[in-house]
Amino acid sequence: MDDSLYGSRDKRGQWTPNKRPSREPLFVWPAQPRKFLVWMFGFPGYLWPWNTVLIAISVVAWIYLTPSLEAMREFDIGWVAGILLRNAALAVLIYGGLHMLLYIQRRQDTNFKYNSKWPDTDNSIFLFGSQTAENVFWTMCSGVPVWTAYEVITWWMYANGYILQLDIQQHPVYFIGLLLIAPAWLKLQFYLVHRLIHMGPLYHIIHRVHHNNVNPGPWSGLSMHTFEHIIYFSGVLFYFVVPSHPMNVMFCLMIQALIPALGHLGFDKLVTEGDKHLDADGYYHYLHHRYFEVNYGDTLIPFDEWFGTSHDGSAEADEAMYRRMKAKNYKRGGSRA
């Protein structure tokens, strides 16, 4: 599949898609009901394919790979270890599987790869000198345990009545509504905590670990300092105060745990067969890793457009970014030059 039909690569090896990131038809005025419905139910769109896949994974995990709430009323090493192993297996399957296909087997070479370079294997900025090794370390030794800790505590609270559990049969519309708003809630939560950890000392102490990945790959998605993992997975706390079903929580956790693999894929599209492909839609966040001070959020809720930090990869966006950075530096007492 020829990526030059969908974008262009400059002399520095940076591939830019012809289709630039733009806000979804949610926060637009005047309203665009037809576009909204196509986006909500079309392919690709809000539900299809990725959120539907995550809902399916959540259903399987809750029904077949999670103990009953009765069994989780008391903390026990057995069921806690079982959830930890399940989450570790999911991480290896999703993150490791994508890494295997794209970065080890290199099934599509650099087609649709934003940066033509491959991850560093001899760079002292990374643990063990290897970008992938550091990414795997932080994901498996910090990300998966923190994810599991939030999940274990949540199930224990459900089991002991500290969280009000929703009856799906009595409130099916409410249950579905909670499922539908979960991705949007997590986009909001992500933007808020992301802006927080880009501030001064928090960036240098915590978020810098993640931003070592200027040229991210799948394993970069959850490669974070442990304190960032604690903040990042806090989105599940929403369900501590809102009546919900454990399936709502499972879906929330699966989004936060697994979707970063796509957001940091490093490729714009996954080529499946011939000219068939799946959009990864990671360019907006890739630009954040490339430029640091743009695209703190997502196109679903256009905070970056509202606050002037959006970048779509165009030359005009470059100029706006440099003007903003110069003005920011000047206000802090820096030089205009």
Rank of each mutant, 00 (worst) to 15 (best):
G7D: 07
G42F: 10
R290F: 10
A320L: 05
G82R: 08
E24I: 06
V214F: 14
R107N: 01
N51A: 03
Q108S: 06
N51Y: 06
Y239P: 10
K276G: 08
V152C: 08
G45S: 09
P216A: 07
L300H: 03
K326M: 07
T66Q: 03
V28H: 09
F43M: 02
L164T: 15
R323M: 11
E228I: 07
F126T: 03
L85N: 00
F227H: 14
E316H: 15
I301Y: 03
H211I: 03
T309L: 14
Y291L: 15
W147H: 04
D318E: 14
A149S: 08
G82Y: 01
G313K: 12
M250K: 09
D268N: 12
Q131E: 11
T66G: 06
H264P: 01
T132F: 15
I55C: 02
K331A: 05
A56G: 10
V28T: 10
Y291N: 15
I168L: 14
V144H: 08
P21F: 03
V241E: 01
A317Q: 11
R195P: 07
W147R: 05
P17T: 08
P49C: 10
S310M: 15
P260T: 02
V152W: 13
G42H: 09
R336I: 13
L222H: 05
I83P: 06
F137W: 04
T154V: 13
H288E: 05
S68V: 00
P216F: 06
Y174A: 09
Y150T: 03
W48Y: 06
G235S: 06
T139R: 13
L84W: 10
H229P: 06
P44F: 08
V28P: 07
Q170L: 14
Y322C: 13
D318V: 14
V271S: 10
G334L: 04
F238E: 05
Y232H: 09
R73W: 03
D167L: 12
H207S: 07
Q189H: 12
I163E: 04
H264D: 11
S130W: 12
Q165C: 15
